[in-house]
Design a protein around this nucleic acid. Structure first.
Length: 866
RNA sequence: GCUGGUGUGGUGGAAUGGUAUACACACAGGACUUAAAAUCCUGCGCCGUUAGCCCGGCUUGUGGGUUCGAGUCCCACCACCAGCACCA
């Protein structure tokens, strides 16, 4: 029996109980059966789910359930990105151990996920803070160390001198520590690096073999990797105290080498530091550059600053002496930290030369001519043939670069080179709540890797950080150990790994739960992930690191795949209205949307906004991402409790296509809820008739019934197409159309009408089941369609139902709509033309003019051109 | 600055070169009700014409182009959003 009123709490409990009890979402490898691995980016257990999570996991769940109904063996797992800084911050604030805080959060958020009815295989759940997970971080780290992919190097960190601790970049605010307010120092400490640059070429070229990734993401990765072709050029120098050497620069414009009039180095460049030793003025300038502007806006507008070092370098081809400058626009971290300056053909060099009166020598004939008068024109930087360049005159860009590179090569002062923007990945974090780096420091033997049989290096879980450094450093039970090589007392490494390490391979582990190895053969069945879903904010780092780790694992023989994610969907953000008041002192107070009232005018436009509390006006701040600081977040828990999971899911799917931003709307949620209630009421009202009804017999249907049935199948056909391209908002509107059509059947009609109702609802429930699985589960069973809608066949439109005897054609005259005609589907071209011309309104516009051309689009329109 | 994306009713949005504004939301009017809520019905781009029906003109950020036909393809510009940013 279907109860009269829609009660989501009861329905959802019933459906979820069924899924749990039957363990319907637990999957195994089935060789020979087509698999589908659907994965959402796992959450950080921050405490509660937010709307972004709900959206992300609903999209994933809809895809997973859809694929399941198409007959695939679908894996959809879930886990926790459980290491990280927020747990340490919470520990400091509340005095509770990060482990405890994390596990409590996981328990609560797991309940929330379960209440949303996601088709997850919980048997494969993992948390990255579990030793059985992170031991494999350590294990692979050691393999990478053996292969030289991991190495030790000095790195620069932000150091808070008061707390005696290392700060993450986001903990440095305006150059000061976020807790202490102390000016942050740069400190050089030894850190472990992963040589992602060894894979730069492959990471770049394989982007072209990822057709299922958004272009935008591929482009962002491409830019991040940043491959540049150029020439490394040496400028020999002789220092006063008889030291000599070669200053190397990198350039993509070797063709302009003869136009170089000075050479500039970064403030941190060794040669600059050397020159500053007995030049206090220069030393002061270098200091100034190092501190210089922090914000991006400052950097962009910063004027070109520089100072001569007093040194000169020798032009490698002409032998000319060029002055060596220190310039604030040269970056130590890119290329060689030094540039050859060609003011005539580079905008920055041009500005610098003008400012400091340095010579400008045009050496390229551009569309602007042979001269480069101020002000700067972008065409000065164009490619062209060489001029004023002696033997290279007349050569084009490629010829000149080849010739100059060859000549430099002969002098051992240059070679063609490719450089990358991508840096190696420093993974050491001076943090407690992370994967311990498996290294032991011995006075005699140095840094010794922990032997495999001593893994995992277990992180003690009861420590509580107090803000003054890593508590591991004060915990002897962890710190003190024996050197694996010589057996003498030694000290354990207390740095932990960047949490991006944890998330770089978790998708492999889901495929091999419980394995006594990092992965086993089962992963080969599941990998690669067929559909990965997550936020665009991970477009670069997480996705790049995951691709890198997959390639490392492949080279170690741990997997056969090169790319972990075949298809990627980046979901849009969840937005809401922002309301605020400005205080007298300019401070801003935000008002949650639930605490304000909008008054609308007769057209439905927002006329005014007032606070519920005091009835006074509130300013509207437009629309923006849900955030704590702006108080415009909506708690999914409230939504689920008030309307149920199906309404939450339906609204998420209906309000916007998955990749676009979604605007929160209480009214929209209400609309989604109303639709489910209407669906329920329809099923309840007709339940007896539907259970008793037989198959549709098309020939016995009246014309109105046939029309309803045609509409249902037409809407279904479109909705199925949209399902395939993951445009779920129109799938939902298609479902609404189907119900609207069925509801148009007159209440009194029986028998034949009931067969149409029975068929229509059967199609509708199956179509909707991936989106609103609870209500469709219960209705499917109660209406007698079968035991479990999950096992039903995916619906397909009946081509017979789509056939019409008459079609309505639109008639255009010169492309403008002028009338409609009804013609038999099999009408001849001539007959259609005749009917179209006979249409009275069409005649008014043709007015006896000769018809030059008739375009007929079958089933759609006629266009008369005159 | 560079790169990419997006601009469609009061709002979210739909349209696979072929009837722009589907499906919803909001709003207005009506039915039911003592009343409200809920529900149901009707209307709803702008301008003109009209008692009303018909009918016409305009409209997908702006301006061009291709096409029998453009929201969709091409060119230029404007606005907003995002990423990168003195990358040699």
């Amino acid at each position: 029996m279907i109860a009269e009123s829609y009660n989501p709490q009861v329905i959802e409990a019933e459906a979820q109980h069924h899924w749990d009890e039957q363990r319907v979402f637990a999957v195994r490898e089935e060789p020979g059966r087509e698999k589908y691995y659907c994965l959402c980016m796992f959450p950080y257990p921050s405490g509660r789910l937010h709307m972004g999570h709900v959206r992300n996991y609903t999209i994933g769940d809809v895809i997973a359930r859809y694929q399941r109904m198409l007959g695939r063996n679908v894996l959809q797992p879930m886990g926790w990105d459980a290491f990280g800084l927020p747990a340490e911050n919470a520990a400091m604030a509340g005095g509770v151990a990060p482990a405890r805080w994390t596990y409590d959060n996981i328990a609560y958020m797991k309940k929330q996920l379960q209440s949303l009815g996601f088709a997850l295989d919980w048997d494969r759940e993992l948390a990255t803070c579990q030793p059985e997970y992170y031991r494999w971080n350590q294990w692979l780290f050691l393999r990478m160390l053996e292969k030289g992919i991991v190495y030790l190097k000095t790195g620069v960190v932000n150091w808070d001198p008061v707390d005696q601790t290392v700060l993450a970049n986001e903990q440095v605010i305006d150059g000061r520590g976020w807790r202490t307010g102390a000016v942050v120092e740069k400190r050089e400490i030894p850190m472990y690096y992963m040589a992602i640059t060894q894979y730069a070429e492959e990471l770049l070229t394989e982007l072209d073999r990822l057709p299922g990734w958004p272009e935008q993401v591929k482009l962002m990765q491409k830019n991040w990797i940043g491959k540049s072709h150029g020439v490394r050029i040496g400028f020999p120098y002789q220092l006063p105290e008889s030291d000599s050497g070669i200053l190397w620069v990198f350039t993509t414009r070797a063709d302009t080498l003869l136009g170089a009039t000075y050479v500039a180095v970064a403030a941190e460049h060794p040669l600059a530091l050397h020159a500053a030793k007995d030049n206090p003025q220069l030393a002061a300038f270098i200091d100034e550059c190092r501190q210089g502007g922090v914000t991006e806006a400052e950097l962009a507008t910063q004027e070109k600053k520089g100072m001569p070092t007093g040194l000169t370098v020798t032009h490698p081809l002409t032998g000319e002496q060029l002055p060596l400058w220190v310039a604030n626009y040269v970056l130590m971290g890119y290329g060689e930290g030094a540039v050859m300056a060609v003011p005539a053909h580079d905008e920055r060099d041009f500005a610098f030369a003008h400012q400091f009166g340095l010579p400008i020598k045009p050496v390229i004939r551009t569309s602007a001519g042979d001269e480069t008068p101020a002000p700067w024109k972008d065409t000065y930087a164009d490619y062209g043939v060489c001029i004023n360049s002696g033997q290279y005159d007349g050569l084009d860009f490629e010829q000149a670069v080849d010739a100059i590179a060859a000549d430099l090569n002969a002098k051992e002062l240059g070679e063609k080179k490719v450089i990358w923007r991508l840096r190696d990945w420093g993974i050491s974090r001076q943090r407690y709540w992370g994967t311990p780096i498996p290294i032991i420091h011995c006075e005699a033997c140095g840094a010794v890797p922990v032997p495999d049989d001593q893994l995992p290096v277990v992180l003690p879980e009861h420590l509580v950080p107090d803000g003054s450094g890593n508590p591991l450093n004060k915990y002897p039970e962890f710190l003190n150990c024996a050197c694996p090589q010589c057996g003498k007392p030694a000290r354990r490494e207390t740095d932990t790994m960047d949490t991006f390490v944890d998330s770089s391979w978790y998708f492999f582990r889901y495929g091999t739960p419980g394995a006594n190895a990092m992965v086993d053969k089962r992963a080969d069945y599941w990998m690669p992930v067929d559909q990965y879903i997550g936020g665009i904010e991970h477009a670069i780092l997480h996705l790049l690191y995951s691709r890198f780790w997959t390639k490392v694992m492949r080279d170690l023989g741990l997997t056969t795949v090169s790319e972990p994610f075949a298809n990627l969907l980046t979901q849009g953000m969840v937005l809401n209205h922002i309301f605020f008041r400005k205080g007298e002192k300019g401070g801003i107070t935000y008002y949650p949307p639930a605490d304000v009232e909008m008054v609308r005018d007769e057209q439905g436009r927002v006329a005014s906004v007032t606070a519920v509390a005091d009835g006074q006006p509130v300013e509207y701040g437009g629309i923006g991402t849900m955030s704590k600081s702006r108080k415009n977040g909506v708690d999914p828990q409230t939504l689920i409790e008030q309307y149920g999971a199906d309404t939450a899911r339906l609204f998420m799917m209906f309000a916007a296509p998955p990749e676009q931003a979604l605007e929160w709307s209480d009214a929209g949620v209400g609309g989604a809820y109303r639709f489910l209630r209407r669906l329920w009421a329809y099923a309840a009202e007709h339940q007896d008739a539907i259970r008793a009804a037989g198959e549709v017999v098309a020939v016995t249907l009246s014309e109105p019934l046939r029309a309803v049935r045609r509409e249902v199948h037409e809407a279904l056909k479109q909705a199925l197409f949209d399902f395939g391209r993951h445009q779920f908002n129109t799938v939902v509107s298609g479902s609404m159309k189907m119900l609207n059509s069925l509801a148009r059947i007159e209440a009194g009609e029986r028998d034949a009408a009931d067969t149409v109702r029975r068929e229509g609802l059967s199609l509708l429930l199956r179509l909707l089941s991936p989106i609103v699985p609870h209500v469709t589960h219960v209705l499917w069973r109660e209406l007698g369609y079968g035991d479990d809608v999950l096992n039903a066949v995916w619906p397909a439109p009946d081509e017979g139902a789509l056939v019409r005897s008459l079609v309505t054609l639109v008639v255009q005259v010169n492309g403008k709509l002028r009338g409609q005609i009804d013609v038999p589907v099999d009408a001849e071209r001539g007959a259609i033309e005749q009917l179209a011309q006979a249409e009275p309104n069409v005649q008014r516009f043709v007015e006896g003019k000769p018809i030059r051309k008739v375009v007929i689009v079958p089933g759609k329109l006629v266009n008369l051109v005159c």
